[in-house]
């Protein structure tokens, strides 16, 4: 149940921005472009989770956002390493 409407509205707007970034994820001419789009989407997802956690008054969503932020960072580093020198 939504207890704080402004946060829910902001979260919905963030979902729109994520869809805009997905356009770049689809059309990006090189693999690096797609990786950058994915990194941006990760940041936006963390912000969205925090906003929705406030909107629904669920602290669990904020914990998930913390773990997601750290794991997506590790994921970005591995993608960068793969772009740099392949699977080795």
């Amino acid at each position: 149940m939504i207890v704080a409407l402004p946060f829910a509205v902001a979260g919905l707007a963030m979902l729109g921005f994520i869809f805009v970034c997905m356009v770049r994820l689809g059309i990006g001419p090189t693999a690096a472009d797609r990786a950058v789009a994915l990194d941006t989407i990760n940041t936006l997802v963390v912000a969205t989770m925090v906003l929705l956690g406030a909107a629904f008054n669920q602290v669990v969503l904020l914990d998930v956002a913390l773990v997601y932020a750290l794991l997506s960072y590790v994921g970005t580093l591995y993608i960068a390493r793969y772009l740099e020198r392949g699977l080795s």
Partner: peptide, 30 residues
């Protein structure tokens, strides 16, 4: 809620520029 949000903020501020730096270097090397 305030403490967890603040921790998420600190992690984003620390990890975001480092990740973009790694991506930029990887793009140049590829």
């Amino acid at each position: 809620m305030a403490v967890r949000a603040f921790l998420a903020l600190v992690f984003l501020l620390l990890t975001n520029p480092t990740g973009s730096h790694a991506l930029a270097r990887a793009a140049h090397r590829s």
